Computed example of a mutant assay.
Amino acid sequence: MSNKEIVVKAMKEFFVDRDHNAIEKYWQENYIQHNPGMIDGHPGLRDILKNSIDSGFKWEPGIFVESGDLVIAHSEVHGWGPNPLIVVDIFRFEDGKIAEHWDVVQEEVPASKTASGNSMTSFNRKGSDK
């Protein structure tokens, strides 16, 4: 399984299925966390899972890109604030598990209010019929 496939599976099991076993399965126990509001390792992940259960939390996957030991995920999150958030996560792998994580979080701006008129979650590829 590729690192990208592992991230997709890990995020689904963690955020959608809310499966506590995903933590041990996909993240190294002492993984390094660069989000300033989260602690390193499994305890930080357990906190996220505990705090996202009752908040109307919903994770919507978007674009995933893999390059070597890095995977970048672009997704939309509901329930962590009054408005949807756009999240870009960067995961570094070591020995088949997530060893390090960075993220950038931005409140979603509706397409009607963007300078381009494009949504923050649409994916348009030149020559594509989608």
Rank of each mutant, 00 (worst) to 15 (best):
S112V: 04
V109T: 15
W102R: 08
G117H: 04
D103R: 00
H101P: 02
N118P: 00
D95G: 03
M120G: 13
S112H: 09
V105L: 10
V104K: 08
N124P: 08
V109D: 01
K113V: 13
F123I: 07
T114A: 05
N124G: 06
W102S: 04
S119H: 04
P110T: 03
K97E: 05
K97F: 01
M120I: 10
G96W: 10
S119M: 11
S116L: 03
F123C: 09
P110H: 02
W102T: 04
P110Y: 08
E108P: 04
E108I: 09
T121N: 09
T114L: 01
R125F: 09
V104W: 03
V105G: 01
F123P: 00
E108Q: 14
A115N: 12
R125L: 15
F123L: 13
E100C: 07
A115M: 14
I98R: 01
G96H: 06
N124D: 07
T114K: 05
A99V: 06
S112L: 04
T121W: 07
R125N: 11
F123G: 00
S119N: 06
A111K: 13
I98Q: 03
V104T: 15
D103W: 01
E100W: 13
A111R: 13
R125Y: 14
K113Q: 10
S116M: 05
V109G: 00
M120L: 15
M120R: 12
H101V: 08
E100F: 11
W102M: 08
D103Q: 01
P110A: 04
S116T: 11
R125W: 12
V105W: 03
G96P: 09
N118S: 14
E108N: 12
K113L: 15
V104C: 07
G96I: 03
E108W: 05
R125Q: 14
I98F: 01
E108S: 14
E100D: 06
P110D: 03
Q106S: 12
V105F: 01
G96F: 09
T121I: 12
N124S: 10
P110G: 05
R125V: 15
N124E: 09
S116Q: 01
R125K: 15
S116F: 05
S122T: 10
A115V: 15
A99C: 00
T114S: 07
G117V: 01
S116C: 01
K97I: 02
G96E: 02
E107T: 15
